[in-house]
Design a protein around this nucleic acid. Structure first.
Length: 397
DNA sequence: AATTCGGGGGC
DNA sequence: GCCCCAGAATT
């Protein structure tokens, strides 16, 4: 908030960063205009996600939803479908909500202040400042993972950056250094420096850094140790079962509740179990879906480990064939019967995609035969999800 | 202040 | 394997 006391040193940093950025800034799709919609979308996608990962998703998304009006009018399923695989799906749900809000409350125009932007779902202090500075020329500093690295090194700050108090301190420092003019470029410059030069650990390229003469960590030879982070929480291990319930060539799928993990995405019904994966647990899951009687394969068709940042989930999938013709709860809009091809085109997580592929590999190989078969891909290599024990990689029909 | 949210790039 | 990533919302 305080732009009053701008020191000579701050001006030097601003000038060097901007000059460096003018020469070395990457040509990214969302930098080609100051259209707040494009910038907003990119900033949301880039949350905790690297540029290289975002690129194809961004291109697809703007092609399908070119304006905030188109996005606001879309169904959430269509949005999640294009987001599928990118992770952190609340971003997509909040994006959709915010689009509707912008159209409804702001006549389709983006708010141009940090405070007003901040009220939109999915827009926190970083994203609000990024949009306000880049699109509307506001003087608003940003702090992200890149800026944390650059600032802790520039000022040789060894506080634990996992503590909110440390990050708050960095927000203050960032704010005191943000220039009144070209603040959007300045913000992108310091992030670009963190992404391409002031990189983590020993990969930092201090030799080509425009701020090497000003860097306290370089002088103190602490670059590789900064930023300092306390140990992160240990990953919990969980066991989940998957019920692949089949009637003819259709599978019962369900939409996950909109909050929580993989919220709003479709899945082959799954559930966490406390002990080991069992056929009994699968039967219970099937019953809860309105499938009272079915035959559950004794051998799983797939065991797949899925690593998340804070937990490791082991999915064990079982085939279930329906007895009789009773349908699952037909009044439940979150349940559907679809072919595997249809399923793969819906918004589903990467974890579920792998499970569905294991299921499909077994299908295609089993076509026309009842024999025990080793699942194979088209390339002839055995299909085996990460961590699958060999014994479980074959299915007994 | 601590947890919860995904998935992949790059070493 | 490991660390990290243009963070936000919830508890």
């Amino acid at each position: 908030m305080n732009a009053a006391a701008v020191t000579k040193r701050q001006q030097t940093l601003q000038r060097k960063l901007l000059a460096w950025y003018d020469r070395n800034g990457r040509d990214l799709p969302w930098r080609r205009s100051k259209d707040p919609y494009a910038v907003w979308l990119s900033e949301i996608m880039l949350q905790q996600t690297q540029v290289a990962t975002v690129m194809p998703y961004y291109e697809r998304f703007v092609r399908r939803f070119p304006t905030v009006h188109v996005l606001a009018a879309a169904r959430i399923d269509a949005v999640l479908k294009l987001w599928a695989g990118l992770g952190y799906y609340s971003r997509a749900r909040n994006l959709h909500k915010a689009a509707a809000e912008i159209v409804r409350e702001h006549d389709g125009r983006f708010p141009d202040s940090v405070e007003a932007l901040r009220t939109l779902p999915g827009i926190g202090r970083y994203t609000a400042a990024a949009i306000a500075s880049i699109c509307f020329g506001r003087r608003a500093a940003v702090v992200d993972g890149n800026v944390i690295r650059v600032l802790t090194r520039l000022f040789n700050i060894s506080d634990d950056v996992r503590k909110p108090a440390t990050v708050n301190r960095l927000w203050g420092i960032a704010d005191s250094h943000a220039p009144a003019r070209r603040c959007g470029d300045y913000n992108q410059a310091i992030m670009e420096l963190g992404a391409t030069v002031c990189t983590p650990g020993a990969t930092a390229r201090c030799d080509i850094c425009p701020l090497q003469a000003q860097c306290a960590a370089r002088k103190a030879q602490t670059v590789a140790e900064l930023p300092r982070k306390s140990a992160k929480a240990v990953v919990r291990h969980e066991t989940h079962i998957v019920a692949a319930i089949c009637a003819d060539d259709r599978w019962l799928i369900r939409r996950r509740p909109s909050d929580g993990l993989w919220g709003g995405l479709w899945e082959l019904p799954s559930a966490q179990v406390s002990g080991a994966a069992t056929v009994e647990a699968v039967r219970r899951l099937a019953r809860s879906l309105g499938v009272p009687r079915c035959t559950v394969s004794t051998q799983p068709f797939c065991v797949s480990n899925h690593q998340l940042s804070h937990r490791l989930i082991r999915f064990t999938g079982y085939r279930c064939s329906l007895q009789g013709t009773e349908a699952a709860d037909s009044m439940n809009a979150d349940l559907r019967w679809v072919t595997l091809a249809q399923f793969s085109k819906l918004g589903i997580s990467q974890a579920m995609r792998r499970i569905a592929e294991a299921l499909g590999a077994g299908e295609s190989n089993d076509r026309g035969t009842r024999s025990i078969s080793r699942r194979q891909s088209r390339h002839g290599k055995p299909v085996r999800s990460a961590g699958t024990p060999r014994a479980a990689s074959r299915r007994i029909a």
